[in-house]
Every structure is written in C-alpha cells, then in structure tokens.
Design a protein around this nucleic acid. Structure first.
Lengths: 103, 103
DNA sequence: CTTATATTTGCCAATATTTGACAAGTCAAT
DNA sequence: ATTGACTTGTCAAATATTGGCAAATATAAG
C-alpha cells in the first residue's frame, strides 16, 4: 500500500506549493483520487505520468521508474523467492534486449 | 505472451510422458485452459503451483520463480527504463528484508 | 467552540480485465 | 477418413479497478 511513486509525487507537489485541489483538475480527476494515488491505494494511468511530471516540473523518467518499481514490488512482495524472481526477469530482459539490438 | 513458466511446464510434462488431458483434471481445469497456460496466454493460480509441481515431480520453488518472473517481465517489457525499474524494486525489496530481519 | 481549508476515507455504480466452459479448429499419425 | 492431442475463438460469469461523490478527519484561525 505504501508507494514510492506516491511519496515522491507528494514531495514534489509540496515543493511546488501546490494543493491536491490545484493539481487534480489538471489530471482530470478529483482530489480524492489524487490523494489515493499519493497514498498508494490507486494507480495513476501510465500516460498521465508525463503530464504530472510537467506539472511538478519533475523528470518524467524518474517518476516512471518509481511507478514501475511499485508495480514490480507488488508482484513479489510476499514471496520468499522475490529476489530470485527478479533476477530471472532481469535475465530475460537483458537477453531480449540483446536480441532486439541485433534484430 | 511467451512464458518461461509455460515452457518449463510443458517440458516437464513431456518428460513425464503426460498428456494435457491427464494433467488438466488434476488441476480441476480442462485441457484448453492448461494449453493456454503452457502457451502463456493464461495464468495458473498461485496456489496451484505446488500442486502442479507435485504432478510433474518438479521443484515447486523453481516453478514459482518462473511464474513470478513472467509477471515481472510483463510489467516492464515495453519500457525503456525497465532495468532501472527492476533495480529500484530490488533495492526496495532488499531494504525491506533488512527491516524485517531486525523487526 | 465554530468556521474554513486541505486531505482522507468509505462507498457504490460503472468499466475493464480475467476466467471458465465449451465448441470448433488444426495437425500428425494411421 | 478417423483418431488423438493440442489449440483457438467466443462469450458469459466472476473479479478487479476506477471514477465520483459525500462524509469524516485534521489543522489552523478566529
């Protein structure tokens, strides 16, 4: 339920001295939803990340990484083999990247 | 859509000379479903992994790792920052583990 | 204590996604 | 052409996620 993405967004929003009430409409949602997003009980839509990054004058990729990391964490958080699974997935990613590069 | 879990299950099933038709009922599903699971278009339920491992005389943890890895991969597969996200998630996992150990 | 403002929470209907079941399909061997 | 193994498509039912609103809380000010 805790979310690195959400925490970072809150941090950035506060640094910009913005209220939920001000930011939420720019993302076409109400303050309650944005509050939940910062609290980690709801997910921001993938394609809103760049929008939010711009509002908060933040780096879109930084936010994306946190947003993805939260979801990765969610998959394995209760598993004893979490780290092994991450390693395995990483391996797959790396080898797919190699194949893509060499088409 | 391709799945390491599914491929491994098929491999193990064939090694045991079992047909879908034989294995599926033990998992309380039809052959079509199990076929899709091996093909990676459907997910086996988390709690059926040990059941399947036993049927295939395989290591339940090995299968669990693949099952999780598929899902991790799914989260980030199209993202440029996939590896960074994995690193971030791994960091979170490690630091949470530290905290848990020290309660 | 009351009001005002910001945020949080709970609820529920709307929407989206996943699943289970079955029928029909392909493919290879005979 | 028939059989057996597997695959694919479809669709309704079951689940999960979302959006929106209202009520609850928190904090600060008067």
């Amino acid at each position: 339920m805790k979310s690195q993405f959400g925490e970072r967004v809150r941090e950035l929003r506060e640094k910009q001295n913005l209220y939920l009430r001000q930011v939420a409409p720019l993302l076409e949602m109400d303050t309650a939803q944005l509050s939940k997003i910062e609290k980690g009980s709801r997910l921001l839509k993938r394609d809103q990340i760049p929008v939010l990054a711009e509002i908060l004058k933040a780096d879109s990729n930084e936010l994306l990484v946190l947003w993805l990391a939260d979801q990765l964490y969610e998959v394995v958080k209760d598993e004893d083999v979490a780290l092994k699974a991450m390693d395995a997935a990483q391996e797959t990613l790396k080898s797919n990247k190699r194949n893509k590069r060499n088409k």
